[in-house]
Amino acid sequence: MFVIKCPYCGERDQTEFSCHGESHIARPENPNEVNDKEWGEYLFFRSNPKGIHYERWTHDHGCRQWFNVKRHTVTDKIIQTYTMGESKPEDNNV
């Protein structure tokens, strides 16, 4: 089980949280102008890396806030948590 550091509440058990997939995916600004391929990429295609993954979690059974987690998908080690709106941290400090 993970211990996840919620940026608002501090360290809590994983069971209080839920994961909602990759973060930092920008919605196309003008959906009517993108073609099917671009829209499909935005909706469905994910990087799914074997390594550093940036993802969105919510603290369901706590403050109910959304935030970002930088985690390694082989070791499951959480490297960093940060709030929504903060820019994506660099890949280097594994």
């Binding site: 089980m1 994983q14 069971t15 994961c19 799914n48 998908t73 499951d76």
Partner: peptide, 14 residues
């Protein structure tokens, strides 16, 4: 299955 991406070949304890 667990909801988070992982290549660890182990599931979460809970």
């Amino acid at each position: 299955s667990d909801a988070y991406n992982s290549y660890s070949q182990r599931g979460s304890f809970d």
